[in-house]
Design a protein around this nucleic acid. Structure first.
Lengths: 148, 148
DNA sequence: CCCAAAAGCTTGGAGTAGTCAAAATATATA
DNA sequence: TATATATTTTGACTACTCCAAGCTTTTGGG
């Protein structure tokens, strides 16, 4: 009610949304150093982390696909996969149908590192446990309505 | 209730917190391209953006302070401020008490660019308006309990 | 069936951003 | 005056990033 001005529009809603975003974004910033530390601890550059995230041990990806996903030049994709390969985390295998193409897979150490990275990046910030269970349930329900 | 195992701890709460975090983090990722676009549109590198954020037009900061805030080498701070200065967005002025030191201020164009940047980075994602006003109020109350 | 064009990838060359260490300069302080 | 402080300069190195050129293989007409 007490919100503000005089136009007929739903300006109160936008103001509340803004405060919601401020809190959410602030919390994200607050917890960011922890996520940065995950990559630092694993010795991964942001590019290597992104690459690791795009790959797995079972499904081979072609260089073309990876370049498209990373929205980079084909030669940059070559360079990126080279880095992972030198780290022993990825390998190129021949494409069974097209001998021009390569399929990129994570090696076993690559899969392990990827798992640690994903676990660390997605780890629940302990600050959330400052809320009680009922509050968390409410939050879960509401946040589930947002695109992800 | 129906949650899981057999230890006496409050394991259901952690599971809900995890889902809350998944939604929140997912939404952050979902909205990230928009924030990247703000910097791209203003032609700012991440370092320049960080520097701009640390400065204003009234309060001078010494190089030493800036290096500490950015947790970088003093010479890196010099390099960073140089960039902003070449862009016409910052200027060094002598320190009134200590002639060894400099005070760094934003210029008028720097202040303007900073404002645009802050506005763009903090802009409320329109997806939030998919929730109704009451839901947003609830969200605001709960999120305000988190550190920011 | 053959060959020119296209596709997939890599290599080589070059440029930008960011980072630090060491040395140099100027000033303040004990 | 000797030492400490604030900053800049110089030099070197890593991480990206693209473009242009080249190699191999596939594909689409004639």
């Amino acid at each position: 009610m007490a919100d503000d001005s005089d136009d007929g529009t739903d300006s109160g809603k936008a103001a509340v949304a803004e405060q919601v975003w401020r809190s959410m974004f602030g919390f994200l910033m607050h917890t960011r150093p922890r996520r940065d530390a995950v990559l630092a601890h694993l010795g991964l550059t942001p590019t290597e982390a992104k690459a690791l995230d795009s790959l797995d041990g079972e499904t081979g990806r072609t260089m073309k696909e990876l370049a498209a996903e990373w929205t980079c030049d084909a030669s940059t994709a070559t360079w990126t996969v080279d880095r992972l390969e030198r780290l022993g985390m990825a390998e190129r295998r021949p494409h069974p149908q097209d001998r021009r193409a390569r399929l990129v897979f994570l090696t076993e150490p690559g899969v392990t590192t990827r798992e640690e990275m994903v676990r660390g990046m997605n780890a629940t910030p302990p600050e959330l446990l400052g809320l009680d269970t009922e509050e968390l349930h409410t939050l879960r329900t509401l946040l589930a309505k947002l695109p992800h």
